[in-house]
Design a protein around this nucleic acid. Structure first.
Lengths: 265, 265
DNA sequence: AATGCCACGTGAGAAG
DNA sequence: CTTCTCACGTGGCATT
């Protein structure tokens, strides 16, 4: 982990440079490269000449996101290796995946009777919001269901969290940071979280990640990092169109079962 | 945006294939490629021959993580475009960044002190729900805004109402619906809605799905997603984002600002 | 010297 | 047709 190649031959800084040239690259192909507005006649040759430029721009977009990812991840987890702006691409991605997986919370559920005090009010407030949203009809059913579902999960987490605080004076502590760990996330709401048979829904033949059914969720920390890799090539499927409508939680309301707490009857 | 190139000429599947050959590629350079344990004499030539293989392996690792990212993100946000296993790399990354940023800004609901007791909890709960909804991005911006707005009004009313109640045993009464005013009825909200606005930021002329650029209101962190990027823009970018509605009612602080959620203590 | 990572340019396809 | 994305192979450079 040192520093490597900060500057390159001509254009300057290579590695993960956020937008290398960005603005009107001075050197290459004046009238082409982006501003093909007027007086540019794609004369065969210059088309080929600006191909690399375009390609580079694409690469830069990717690298830019990668850079963003790095810094975000650096904030999130104080990973030493991410401090260095030259972190390896593969590492950044791997850690991002890892982090996202970690965001999935076990959410052991429980939630029974209502409580009083702050906690009770909190839950009640969430309750209200949820049922309100649930009854709103300006949103298509599917999305509504999804959002409500997610909201319930979130609600569940929050309620749990608040349960650990003393009911009254949380006021000063609860608020900052950390209240909403991850808005979305939590996977496949479909049911309790454990998948049924491997085939059933997914229908997506090749790489069907979802590492290990029961292991990856619940366990906050890594399960597999990369040893799994079984998927082995896809290619066999000649289907056009991903199709597989059923990828998602059934969506037919009433899906989520045991683990997800629901505010409505 | 459909599908593109699922299988390639010979070796099979190109795009985003998870480890194409992985172990001991049968076709190329028998003894090299990974198992350079014994009886391998790097004879100059085969070194160069296996360079591409190694490089490919590296590429595959990256692509694999990208695939993981896609599926994770797909679970998290029901982004239509991510269902397609051929989602563009740049898009996946961009959306990942966007998502992570959202995770970080839980919108602490209230910069100031929270109220205690049932009322405080109630308001806090509604706040949380609202900000959660606000950050969900599987709903088109307009509808989201609308719903959030309604939710805020509702929140306000409810909070008021609870002020008049005694703090504790409301629990049994408040509960299910009945509290909610009739769910909105649409009014504004452009007709079909549901998908994002036609053209977003992106400077990228052709297919640029991806919902709203930075959309999420509040967003303490994130400065630029890529709006600053205009690498000499193809078309003028003309449009300007949704601009922050400032949906949140006076009451609930609407502060957040500098508060960024951080997972560490 | 050897390994690994990266940016580059290019041909191939696909989408519009 | 064009326009864009991709995988590929390669040279360059850093690190061990």
């Amino acid at each position: 982990m040192g520093i490597r190649r900060q500057i390159a031959e001509d254009s300057g800084h290579k590695r993960l440079s956020p937008h290398t040239e960005q603005m009107h690259s001075p050197g290459i192909c004046p009238q082409a490269a982006g501003c093909r507005m007027r007086n540019s006649y794609p004369n065969r040759e210059d088309k080929r000449l600006m191909k690399p430029v375009i390609e580079k721009r694409r690469r830069d977009r990717i690298n830019q996101s990668l850079e963003h990812l790095r810094t975000l991840l650096l904030e999130a987890t104080h990973d030493e290796t991410l401090k260095n702006p030259k972190a390896e691409k593969a590492d950044i991605l791997k850690k991002t995946v890892h982090f996202l997986k970690m965001c999935h919370n076990p959410v052991p559920s429980d939630g029974k009777k209502l409580l009083s005090g702050f906690k009770g009010g909190f839950r009640e407030g969430l309750n209200q919001a949820t049922s309100f949203l649930n009854s709103a009809d300006s949103i298509c059913q599917k999305k509504k269901e999804y959002v409500v579902q997610r909201l319930c999960q979130h609600m569940e987490q929050q309620t749990q969290k608040h349960c650990h605080d003393s009911a009254q004076d949380v006021s000063s502590r609860v608020n900052q940071r950390q209240i909403l760990p991850s808005p979305p996330l939590i996977s496949r709401v479909t049911g309790n979280g454990l998948e049924q048979s491997p085939e059933t829904q997914t229908s997506r033949p090749p790489h069907s990640h979802h590492p290990s059914p029961s292991s990856s969720f619940r366990t906050p920390c890594m399960g597999q990092e990369q040893q799994q890799t079984p998927p082995q090539t896809f290619q066999a499927n000649t289907n056009k169109k991903p199709t597989q409508r059923t990828l998602f939680p059934p969506t037919s309301s009433s899906v989520n079962s045991a683990l997800v707490w629901r505010p409505w009857p």
